[in-house]
Simulated scan of single mutants.
Amino acid sequence: MSPSTTPHAGSAPTATAAAAAPARHVPTREDRRRSPQRRRRVRRDAILFFALIAPNFLAILVFSYYPALYNIGLSFFDWDFVAPVPEFVGLSNYLELLTDPGFGEVLLNTLIFSGASVVVSIAGGLLLGSLMATKVPLTGFAQTMAFAPHMLPGAAVGTLWLFMFDPNYGLSRWLFSQIGLASPDWTTTSDWSLAAITIAYTWQRLGFVTVICYTAILDLPKDLYEAAALDGAHGWQLFRHMTLPLLSPITFFLSITGIISAAQAFDIISIMTNGGPGTSSSTLSWMVYEEAFKNFDIGAASSAATILLIILLVVTWMQVRAGDKKVSYA
């Protein structure tokens, strides 16, 4: 046999063996998903996840959801803090509340107070935030002064505005005297009491809204404004057609948080008007306090709190739906 034929003879068994060997199995995604190592890793990550969220979850459950559910349960009972066992009365607390002539005024006060404070604070915050974003002199000082009211306690804000609204010695007297009018009795007459607490609360929240709007305006894309300016847009046109649409997520957030916060306002009302005269400046949050800790009617207080919760849930749902529609249309 010649040397040239040796490699061909020797290669035959090797090719046969390679052909006879089974094909190597390549793990699929399903195999990797079912592997013991992956299952152990997923189990370990799940345990770590639940361990990290457990403290916050328990805190929310104990301090938020449980009190809300307990309050809803109390609304079906008659209790005065003294009786050892509450008496089940069904829906009678809700029926008495809804047929009370004063409840309609309280509900209307809540809607006016919440709506006016949210609308005015967002409009003022957008305007002041836009002015600050133009890099006017003393912008840092203006930011501090704008945000300062938000840092003050509600009791301090109420005391401050109580002095400013004083018809004999306050700032209101001086302002009205400049136009030859007498200052109204802001906090002692039913015609002005609701306006007084609305102005005070709006002033307190305006600084927070202004800083949020100012920060959001600084983050807006500058190239869009430059392109719009090249097309001839300026001033009010830029604000209306550029700034407002781009800030819609921020205004959506501020409107939801503003309504929830305003509907629960208590300290300013307590300091300035005490819910009066009569029920002219009483809101649902103040009604809950009066029924529970002045009249000792826990059933009526729980019913009012439950109605307030339902209103806030409905308003929030409507705002979320409106926000989703805006996003889909965009």
Rank of each mutant, 00 (worst) to 15 (best):
P245C: 05
S248Q: 11
T283R: 07
P245Y: 07
G276Q: 13
N295W: 05
I199W: 12
L218H: 09
T243S: 11
V209W: 05
I269R: 06
Q264S: 09
I298D: 02
I199F: 11
I307C: 14
I271T: 10
H241M: 04
W203R: 00
D219P: 03
I268G: 00
R205E: 07
A200D: 01
I217K: 07
S248C: 03
G275R: 10
V314P: 04
D267T: 10
S190K: 10
L254K: 02
F293K: 06
T306Q: 07
L312N: 15
V211N: 01
Q204P: 01
T306K: 11
L313P: 00
M287Q: 12
A263M: 15
P249Q: 09
Q237T: 11
V314N: 11
P221I: 02
I197G: 01
G276Y: 13
E226A: 12
T210S: 09
A292I: 03
Y214M: 05
E226N: 09
R205M: 15
T251C: 12
P249K: 12
W236T: 07
F253K: 02
L220N: 02
I217R: 10
G276K: 11
G275E: 04
L206A: 05
L247Y: 05
T306R: 13
D297R: 14
I310L: 15
F296E: 08
P221M: 06
I268D: 01
D223M: 08
L313I: 13
S302L: 05
A304S: 11
L246V: 02
P277I: 14
E291A: 11
I268Q: 05
L246S: 01
S261T: 08
A200Y: 00
I298N: 05
T273G: 02
H234D: 08
G299K: 09
D223Q: 12
K294I: 05
I311G: 04
W317Q: 10
G207R: 15
A304D: 02
F293Q: 04
M318A: 15
A200V: 00
L224A: 05
I197N: 04
A301T: 03
M242G: 03
V320F: 12
G232V: 03
L312M: 14
A229H: 07
E291N: 12
L230E: 10
M242V: 08
M318Q: 13
T251L: 06
A304R: 09
T202F: 00
P277L: 14
G258C: 04
V209P: 02
P249I: 07
V288T: 09
G276S: 12
I259G: 02
L206Y: 01
T279I: 15
T215E: 03
Q237S: 15
F266K: 05
E290I: 11
L308S: 10
F253S: 06
T257F: 06
A304F: 06
D267V: 10
T279D: 04
D297E: 12
